[in-house]
Amino acid sequence: MSGDSVVAPKLAAPIVQLIDVRKTFGAVPVLNGISFDVAKGEVVCIIGPSGSGKSTLIRCINALLPVTSGTIRVADIEVGDPRLDKLALRRKVGMVFQQYNLFPHRTALQNVMMAPLHVLKQDRIEVEARARALLAKVQLAGKEDTYPGELSGGQQQRVAIARSLAMRPEVMLFDEVTAALDPETVKEVLVTIHELADEGMTCLLVTHEMGFAREVADHIYFTDKGVIVEHGPPQEFFTAARDERTRRFLSQVL
């Protein structure tokens, strides 16, 4: 079960589909033929050593980075299309970053309101009501008028999740969202993501939190040097890894 062309059979039609995706930075190859599907409502975790191209991969999916070759489809949008409407794509794909990347000059509430207000041109009163509800959902009621600089890392990250959810995305991408957090605040963010997954949100996570991946993921992909080395459901993956590289990595992190 290794290599480039593995596409696991899925029951539902995939909402995210990658076929032989390759990406080079100059002469340096980062992704060397990645293929996988994510079904609607599925939670997929991508794990692997640093520098294995995980963040690059996730950035290709919402067209923050162009792929060198291969096909990416998200909700029937062809991401590699030169006439791609990037904004239409990004309306369907939410993204949360390692460093939160909140807008420091706007309050928590304004951060959450910005995109629906200006991109979707929704009614301000409705947007505000929904933004307040989202902040409450991520356990931040009462912090609406606080600026990001006054919030802890975990709180900022939850605002960032609420900010993405405000666009009602069909897929959420999480790029090592707990890597920059203090250990005691990691949990609160993971709880938020877990709730999202339970509600049926399609999630694609790059993560180093093995315990969390095991708990929440429907499927785990292990990447190294730009290829998928091994993949499978968490039970199988964590207990019966076949590839030597996977076993070495797991013995280091578990």
Binding site: L64, R90, F97, N101, M114, H118, V119, R163, S164, M167
Partner: peptide, 16 residues
């Protein structure tokens, strides 16, 4: 540059 990335990923246009 992460501020640009965050704005882009929220589907804000360049002008916005």
């Amino acid at each position: 540059s992460t501020q640009w990335e965050a704005a882009e990923s929220l589907a804000l246009s360049r002008r916005q």
